[in-house]
Amino acid sequence: MQVIDLATMPLRDMNATLQAQGAETNQRAWEIANPRGAHAIAVGLDAPIAVRVAGSTGYYCAGMNQQAEITVTGSAGPGVAENMMSGKVVIEGDASQYAGATGHGGLLVIRGNAASRCGISMKGIDIVVEGNVGHMSAFMAQSGRLVVCGDAGDALGDSLYEARLYVRGSVRSLGADCIEKEMRAEHLAELEELLSAAGSDAVAGDFRRYGSARQLYHFNIDNAY
């Protein structure tokens, strides 16, 4: 295990060190000590390495991640795993607003709660939240899956495209053009797979599925002001 102590190594050097790891690196396990809420920890990684951040992070942790598996043992600030392409990011605590925003791929797991706008404009990322999500989650979500084991806040899935949303608890309100949909066998199967990948013991049959009514795809004069 390689240990980087942010109390002694500057943030940019830490990121440069991790970004320099290639596909063939032998240094596959890293620990970042003393994150102390710093911004942009472990961003832009592109190697099959495991990074454990021992503490809580500030803005934009694990942004643009590819291949790496990043675990934050505390909570994460705004924009965690923003625009993730592949790999896996696990937040053991809570995540602040717009977790997983615009993500194209990979799996983001939040063991606690996620705040507002979780998965906003997601484009293929899978997100599993073991707690609740705040308002406007999955706003304009294009593809990928958002799984919420707790409750969802107001305006879930507003202006949704083709992302699929699964919620076990209550939904305070659905956003424009988001509707509940039938849970068919293929949905139960993909949900079981996601829960298993996230290490959650939730039961797929307890969830409801939400998706786009596809009424906003084309211009409708009744929607104009």
């Binding site: 500030g58 909570s75 600030g77 607003q97």
Partner: peptide, 26 residues
Amino acid sequence: PIACKPAVLAETDRYVAFGSEYRALV
């Protein structure tokens, strides 16, 4: 209600603390 400005609260038996970011509290 939109809550785009950041906020973190921390509470112990000894105090309640507010920070725009967690790093203010460390």
